[in-house]
Design a protein around this nucleic acid. Structure first.
Lengths: 142, 142
DNA sequence: AATATACATTATAATAGTTCTAAACTATTG
DNA sequence: CAATAGTTTAGAACTATTATAATGTATATT
């Protein structure tokens, strides 16, 4: 599979050893059309289904964090109860569906650029991200 | 103390029994000039310092959640490792200082209104909030 | 290709934050 | 002032995450 070689090279490029587990995780995470959001638990399930061997929970945590540090993944804090990760590592906005707890990327064209007029003195702005909470039209909000 | 009577009435208004603990928490949380942000742990410490009696951790959790449900407090998800709460319950934006992990309210005048051009079909927008991550000017970002 | 070394993976233990439980307590109602 | 419905409490339980220490594996060196 040519794609695996790609992942091996990509891992090497950022200084991560291409172990079986890491390559498998790359396949699961990046070998797809669209970026997506997941929790560690989601990921463990997905990997277990796709691999014949089981993978250790600790490995998934370690590897996700390794990927995050190297810019392959981005952590999203929406819900304080669990960590979401995003394979879209660019600065971008989200819709959060309060009915389904689903996180949806916002197209750049869906929102006008945000204009910050005044910043904290002595600080540099690293990111500006918008979270739009939505819910069913007929339902009362939480 | 006249202010306590206020809190007793306010608790009653929303259907919460004005117990000793709840009134004390109101004093700690709302008897101040400016709104502020806290974690449950912060709050337990503050209450323990101000009361001669100790308060149960479970009570603080219960009461914070009761207050949240009644619109006295608002939960803020910035850091997936702990829950922050805000005594400013309006929809508003935040600066998050990545150096100190401090959460700072953004004045309405500091930011232009955010314009959402396209929403998820069949959903209603409940809130639009901006998070501006800042860090020391000279420091590299995480 | 065999070997040494540094890094990874694993199962499990430990920790931190939060929620649950059930008994004791207290504010409210009649 | 007794009944009752809701509250507080300590501690157990639970969940997500991180640490540990032994085993395994990728890589560089021979």
């Amino acid at each position: 599979m040519a794609k695996n070689c790609n992942f091996i090279d990509k891992l090497r490029e950022v200084g991560l050893r291409p172990t079986k587990q890491r390559v498998k995780m790359c396949e699961v995470l990046f070998n797809r059309e669209k970026t997506f959001h997941f929790t560690i638990n989601d990921l463990v399930k997905m990997i277990s289904e796709q691999m014949n061997q089981k993978i250790s929970l600790a490995t998934v945590y370690n590897t996700v964090h390794a990927f995050e540090k190297k810019g392959y993944l981005k952590e999203i804090s929406i819900d304080s109860h669990k960590s979401y990760f995003d394979t879209n590592t660019s600065i971008h906005h989200h819709f959060f569906d309060e009915d389904t707890h689903e996180l949806i990327d916002c197209d750049e064209s869906d929102i006008d650029p945000v204009n910050i007029k005044k910043n904290i003195t002595g600080k540099k702005i690293n990111s500006v991200e918008v979270l739009i909470k939505v819910a069913s039209d007929n339902q009362t909000q939480k």
